[in-house]
């Protein structure tokens, strides 16, 4: 079996978000980069767990990004995986990214493709679904549990107000979230091994992006908190009812 895990690079969750060049670009200075938590904690760790149970599984990682992605890809390889592929292009358009990954996936003959449920920077939750469509295979989104046996997968996925269990034959694309696996810390052996694992860099396919970011903005700051004394809860209820009009 062959598994492909999509890896994206995102700012650390503690990053202060700011913009430059007239709010058209993300201010990267001082930002720490991490593997997108959903890709790392759930998609990648689950793929590693499957490989630990069946050593014949080939596990490949894939990213679309410039050379600045390499440290993050090495970090992912330190957790596990046989090799990584980086498609050398920078673009935020989900369709552009999905087409690049689809080109590689078509050649690779993967049985299972895992992504995180979204990236914590663009929050679009789109690449997995687009990729599945381009490959013409089923897509199970927002998975909370992924079991694979031979040629089929059993997947729990989030639905409104609960979960459902789906059965699907491979190949399939699955987007992963909490529940699928538990975060792991890479060990020294993994970090050493990652240095010599293959990281193939390939050039992107020619494709036009369908969207582009024109500008960014920050939310308007709050006016400031109105404090109510702990023995005057009645006043809070009055404010919520009469002033904020939310109850």
């Amino acid at each position: 079996m062959k598994i492909l895990v999509c890896i994206s690079k995102t700012p650390d969750t503690t990053s202060k978000i700011s913009f430059k060049e007239n709010n058209t670009k993300f201010e990267e200075s001082g930002v720490q980069w991490i593997i997108n938590p959903y890709d790392e904690w759930y998609a990648l760790v689950r793929a590693i767990e499957l490989k630990e149970k069946d050593a014949s599984i080939q596990l490949h990682l894939i990213s679309v990004g410039g050379a600045d992605y390499d440290p993050v890809i090495r970090k992912a390889l330190a957790l596990g995986g046989d090799e990584a592929i980086r498609i050398n292009a920078t673009n935020n358009d989900s369709y552009f990214i999905a087409v690049q990954i689809a080109e590689v996936a078509k050649q690779g003959g993967y049985d299972l493709i895992l992504t995180g449920k979204e990236t914590i920077d663009y929050n679009s939750s789109s690449v997995g679904g687009m990729l599945a469509e381009l490959l013409d295979v089923p897509y199970i989104s927002l998975a909370t549990k992924v079991e694979v046996n031979n040629s089929a997968a059993t997947v729990n996925r989030e639905i409104e107000g609960g979960e459902e269990t789906d059965e699907v034959s491979l190949p399939v694309v699955i987007s992963c979230q909490k529940g699928v696996a538990e975060q792991r810390i890479p060990n020294m052996r993994g970090i050493m091994a990652a240095r010599t694992k293959p990281l193939k860099v390939i050039e992107p396919a020619a494709v036009e992006a369908l969207t582009n970011v024109v500008s960014y903005e920050l939310p308007a700051p709050k006016a400031g908190v109105k404090l109510v004394a702990a023995d005057n809860v009645q006043e809070l209820v009055r404010l919520l009812h009469e002033e904020a009009k939310v109850i």
Binding site: T211, N212, S215, Y216, E217, P219
Partner: peptide, 8 residues
């Protein structure tokens, strides 16, 4: 934050 995204 928010992004203003143009669809082309």
């Amino acid at each position: 934050a928010f992004a203003n995204v143009n669809i082309t």
